[in-house]
Write a protein that binds this DNA or RNA. Structure first.
Lengths: 257, 257
DNA sequence: GAGGTTACTTTACGCCGTAAGGAGTCGCAA
DNA sequence: TTGCGACTCCTTACGGCGTAAAGTAACCTC
């Protein structure tokens, strides 16, 4: 499932996202739940089951039925928006620039990456229609603050912010989905890869001759962390070296100023 | 829905992906359908309805029930894999290098981008567990062939291939999902954005003061194509300038050789 | 023409998000 | 004190989904 932000009433969604401490006195029975509790439960369930978590599962975790949630939250889409923004609150809102913008961006990317890995379902919340929550803003503000310090014009910075975002998301997705797929089927990465590549070379024996450049790309490997599974190791290496290249490009633009 | 590649029997999946022209004579009634026809229908339905298309809808388009498809294809996941690989067949398998690697990579990215826009559901097929189909290989082979010509070592190229891939996917996703969300609700981008930003400034009036760097980033805009809707315009600009920065980074690495 | 194989259908199961309506609980005004 | 409206939470139900199971009819081979 992919969730598009805020399909429902925009006012209701945004009020929930930016809600302050609501303390109105109201009649009727005391609420046994709260939006916060539901969002927490939702995150916990989604961390375990991925974006395909069900309202019933969230309710169950709170000792309620699924329908009880609808008292607090208009629907699943809005709940996901709230979960997304809450998750973004885990990240720092500003970065130390004393080691230069490059070190700061690297730390931002690292933090973001780790957050994605902790909450892989976040990677499936649409980016195109931003959730427009306060913490989502804050995270981008943090990156913008670092990059503005380079002195580059806004026109160029927007592309760079996008590129960094896309890159971190993509790289994290590679790891996150590998884990999720393994977890869902109980298969480890290696097993999955082994089973398929074995069948592949059996059916298509001269794969290396058909795709020589891909084969060339596989050369020159160095182990990074032998503790990590194969695919993950690969992803971490690609993350580091890809980010380095990307930031070199930024550095080039800065140097031309 | 996000589809993880090949959850089913690996042999069956990969045989389907790499199947040659199957011409065995078989007993029983003549097949009225074929894997190819089903894959085509699936792509057509997914282009219209997105990844949340249903097996029933694909069957209906072929004048059959949903269950008829299961004679040819093990399940929806496998069908999506086949649709994915078929879609990749739309792309060129090699690029002219006479204008240099940079021009070639730019064309590759442009082609890839357009393919994603034509078939937005492709962006929701997992990347981490590659589908391992022949055309997916061919597309990456094409990019690898261009980049190998730079002379950079495989270690560095893997990160670069990843970065370019992530970037193009992310940038395309921004446009694709904006369109999809608009299409699903019948809202145009502008309306969506207007409705939300209006509520936002009402609820949080001093947004610009809370996130000054984001506000700074919005400066210095220039119109690219006034025909395109707002969000899309933005995305196209970011795609171009982001790719430029990324390739500058690659160029830096090449220059150091 | 019999028997096995295959294409396709019908039916059904257990999920999903959520609409509708009812039961019980509380604050407050009469 | 009583009644009422507001509120939380429940049960039930609907129409969707992917697909398992079993049945029917077409076709090939012997």
């Amino acid at each position: 499932m992919v969730v598009y932000a805020g399909q429902g009433d925009p006012r209701r969604s945004i009020e929930l996202l930016w809600r302050g401490p609501v303390t109105e006195k109201r009649s009727g029975p005391k609420p046994g739940l709260s939006v916060d509790a539901i969002v927490d439960a939702g995150i916990a369930v989604a961390d375990e089951q991925g974006m395909a978590f069900s309202m019933r599962a969230v309710g169950e975790r709170l000792g309620r039925t699924a329908m009880a949630l609808y008292t607090y939250v208009p629907g699943k889409n809005e709940l996901v928006d709230l979960m997304y923004d809450r998750t973004m609150a885990e990240l720092p809102t500003s970065y130390d620039l004393s080691d230069g913008w490059r070190a700061a961006v690297t730390r931002w990317a690292q933090d973001m990456w780790e957050c994605y890995i902790r909450h892989p379902w976040v990677l499936q919340v649409s980016q195109a229609r931003p959730v427009l929550g306060p913490h989502e803003f804050a995270v981008t503000e943090a990156l913008a603050a670092i990059l503005v310090s380079t002195g580059l014009p806004g026109r160029e910075l927007r592309g760079i912010v996008g590129a960094i975002n896309y890159f971190v998301r993509g790289a994290a997705q590679t790891v996150a989905e590998a884990r999720a797929a393994g977890g869902a089927t109980g298969e480890a990465d290696e097993e999955w890869w082994y089973a398929r590549s074995a069948v592949l070379v059996e059916i298509e024996p001269d794969l290396e001759k058909k795709f020589p450049m891909l084969h060339l790309l596989e050369n020159d490997r160095e182990p990074i962390d032998p503790e990590l599974p194969y695919l993950e190791n690969d992803a971490v290496e690609n993350f580091r070296s890809g980010l380095r290249v990307l930031l070199n490009g930024v550095e080039g633009a800065v140097a031309k100023l």
